[in-house]
């Protein structure tokens, strides 16, 4: 028994594991945590992916077919949440040197991720709340082809 004892060389396996870790670290995207992936987005052929490179402030709103607003999986009161985000956007813009008074247009883009079967009156409630708080720029999320 003693003559066959040996120590395995762990260096190659460690190398391989580190390579895998590097791969996953590079491809992981924590932004997707803000997206409710249970929503079925509408299919719009002309919808194109846009990468803002982090230069544009985004407010992502997930709206399900019942008109509920979900933020990181938690249901929020639409009016209160949007008013709070508007205040944050205003303060952020002021910190960057912009002169924004209450009622002025906000620089943040509202990203609407709504379920395809959401009735318009529920969606419009969210859009109206955004407009009342000064948001004017919207990005309506859609798939450009049907997912299997």
């Amino acid at each position: 028994m003693e003559s066959t004892e040996g120590t395995p060389n762990l260096t190659p396996i460690l190398d391989m594991v580190f390579q895998l870790i590097t791969f996953f670290m590079l491809v992981i995207n924590f932004k997707s945590a803000s997206m409710d992936l249970t929503l079925r987005l509408p299919v719009v052929g002309s919808a194109r992916p846009v990468d803002h490179q982090g230069e544009v402030d985004l407010l992502v709103l997930n709206i399900n077919d019942k008109g509920d607003l979900n933020v990181y999986g938690i249901k929020k009161n639409i009016e209160e949440y949007i008013a709070g985000e508007a205040m944050t956007s205003r303060l952020t813009a002021r910190r960057k040197g912009a002169k924004i008074e209450p009622g002025d247009e906000l620089p943040t883009t509202v990203v609407i991720r709504a379920d395809r079967s959401t009735p318009f009156y529920l969606l419009n409630r969210v859009i109206l709340a955004c407009q009342q708080n000064g948001f004017r720029n919207f990005a309506l999320k859609a798939m450009n082809k049907e997912q299997s």
Binding site: L37, V50, T109, F138, L140, N144
Partner: peptide
């Protein structure tokens, strides 16, 4: 390293590529 790898494998959820339609929606 294996623990780290397990964490990354379990939390890895590739987000679908979504398009968008940019609009200005004034009242």
């Amino acid at each position: 390293a294996f623990q780290l790898l397990t964490f990354f494998i379990l939390t890895f959820k590739p987000a679908p590529v979504e398009g968008q339609v940019n609009l200005r929606l004034p009242p």
